[in-house]
Design a protein around this nucleic acid. Sequence first.
DNA 1: TCAGAGTGCGCC
DNA 2: AAACGGCGCACGCTGA
Length: 648
Amino acid sequence: MNNQQIVLATKEIVCKYRSHNKKDSADAFYSWKETEILLKRYRLKQPARVKSISAKYHLITNAEQLRELLDPLIDTIETFGLDTETTGLDPHTSKVRLVQIAVPKHPVFVIDLAAIDRTKLTPLKQLLASHCLKIGHNLKFDLMMLKSAGFNLEPPYFDTYLGYKILTAGLKRSSTLETLARKLLRVKLNKSAQTSDFSYSLSSEQLQYAANDAAVLLPLHRQLTRHLSKAKLTATAQTEFDCLRAVAQMELNGVRLDLDKWQLLKQELRQQQARLEEKLLAHLIAGDLRSRSLRGRLTNTLLTELSIRVNLSSPKQVVTAFNQLGIDVRSTNVRELIPLAQDYPVIRWLLEYRSLTTRINTFSVGLPQFIHPTTERIQGHWWQMGARSGRFSCREPNLTNIPRDISTRQCFTASPGNVIIKADYSQIELRLMAQASGDRPMIEAYRHGEDLHRLTASFLFDKPIENIIDEERKLGKIVNFGLIYGMGVAKFCLTTAKKHNIYLSKSEASQFRQKFFLLYKGVAAYHQRIRREWQAGARVSYSLDGRRRVWSKRTKPTLNELLNHPIQGTNATIIKRAIALLDSTLLSKVPQVKLILVVHDEIVLEVPRKLADRVARCLSDCAVEAARPILAPIPVEVEVKVLDSWGI
DNA sequence: TCAGAGTGCGCC
DNA sequence: AAACGGCGCACGCTGA
C-alpha cells in the first residue's frame, strides 16, 4: 500500500483507528503503517445480504462548473450531506483533496480542490457557510480539515456518528459509516477501492466510493432522526451538535506547555524518586540479608545487585521482598497495603514511589512527546461522546487527568499577551444529587447559601455548625462526595486513608455512613428507589435531562452504575450546553478567544489580556445559564478565575 | 516475540 | 449479587 492508496482514508476510519490504538502512545500521530493495518481489518468485514450502492455523481474540476452547479443550490436547498477526502488524518499537515456534497434529487457533487483555482472557490465557501443543515459522519474531522483549508463550515449540523453514539450510549459498538449503512439502511459500502491500486490522479473507483459515502448520509439522517425522536433523544442530540464547532476548534487550538519549566519539574521529581528508591532498596536488602543469613554492610555493590533483582514496579517482586521483611502481604494492591501503611514506613514509601513513577513516566516524559511539530502545542483528541455517561474523553494525550498540583499546572501557560480564564462549577454533582433525590436538607442548605460540607460535619460530630473546625469539615466533604453513589464501608476507609491520610476504623466509618443517610433521608430514599429498579432488572438509565445509557442483554448494570449515571450524565449535558452557548455568543464571533480545555466541570480559555474582563463575565454567564434551568430552584455557583497559567 | 488482560494511578 | 461512577496510559506478566 502506498500513500496514494490512503488518500481516501476517511474519517470514520479515524474512529475505528482510535479504538484499536490504545497502546500506541509513543507516537502522537497516525502512522501509515497503523492505518494500513486498520484498513486491512476493515476490508475483512463483509456484511451479509445487503445491497451495494452506486450513487450517481458529478465531478467538478473547474471554477465554471463549480459556480454553475453550486450557485443555484444556495437559495433552494435546506440540507445537504457533506464528506471530505483528505491526504491524511492530521489537520495541521494534511490537505483536503475532495469535498463531496450530497443534495436530494441531484447527483453527488464531487469537488476536486486540487484542480480548481483557490481564489475561485467562493460558491463552495458560501454553501458551507449557509444556513443549510449539514449532515456528516464525525463532522469534527471535516470541521477541522475544512477550517485549516480556509473554509468555515457553519451550523446547524447533524452528525450521524454522534447521533448513533447517543442512541447506543453504554454499548461497545462499532460506529463507522460502514456499520451504520449496513445496520440502518442495509446498504453495503464497499471499501475495497481504498486498498486497490490507486493511480496518481483519482480513478473513477475512488470517485465512486467518495460519492457513495456522501450519498448515504441523506437516508441515514432520516433514519437516525426517526430513531432519536422515538427514543426521545432529539434534545440530547441537539446539545451534542450545538457544541461540535467549539469542540473541533478546541482540538485545533491545542494547549501550550512551557517546556523549560516542565524539564525543571521533571528533574525535581526524578530526584525525589531516586531518594525514595534508595531508601526502599536499603530496607529491602536488609530483609534480604536476614533471610539469607548474611551479614555485612550495605555497600553500593549490594544495592546495585538488589536493584537488579528487585524491580520496584513489579508487584510480584515487591511482594517477595516484603515477605522477606516479615510483612505478610499476598499482593501489593492498595486494599492490602493501606491497612499496613500506618505500621510500616516502607509501605508508605512504596505507595509514594509508585505515584512518583506515574508522575514521571506518564506526564513528565510522556506529555512532551505530544507537542506537535507544526503547532508546537499539545493537540489532544477530544471525543464528545467518549464516555458511556455522555462525558468527554480525551486521548493522545489525555488532557483531563493532568496532576492538579500548582507546579504541574503552572507549566500550562498562556501564550504571550494572553491570559488563561477558567470557570469551575462548584459542587455540581452534589447539587445534582440534591435535585435528583429532592432531598430537603440538601436543597435548603444550597438555597440558603450554606456550606454543605460543614452541615454534614456538624451532624457527624454532633456540634453546631459554627464550631466545626477545618479538619471536621474536610471529613464532611469526604463523606458527602463518597457516599452519594453508595460507597461501601471498606472502600470508604480505603479512600480516606489513601487520599486524605485519615485512618478510620470500620465502625467509625460505618457510623459516619449511617449518620449521613439519617441526615439526608431523601438521598437514602433515592438509593432505595434505584435499588428497586435495579432489582427489577433495569437495563436503562436516564439522566435528568433525558440522556440515556443502556446495557446489552448480556451485561447487567451494577447498582452503583445506576446510582451514578443520572448525575454524571446530567453534568455532561450541562457543560456541553455551556460550551454551545459560549460558542454562539463568543467563540464564533471573537476568534482570538480560544477554548483549550474541558475537564468535566471546568472550562478553560486562552484569551488576549485586553479582553479578559469581558470574556470572564461572558464565560460565567454562559456557565450559569446552562445549568440554571436544570438545577432550579437550587442555585448554580460558578467560580471564574483569570490567570497567567492553568495553575496560578 | 507479542497481543491482551490485569494492576495501578492520574483527573473530575 | 455487589459493595462510589466515568475515563486513558504505563508497566510487568502471561500464554500462545
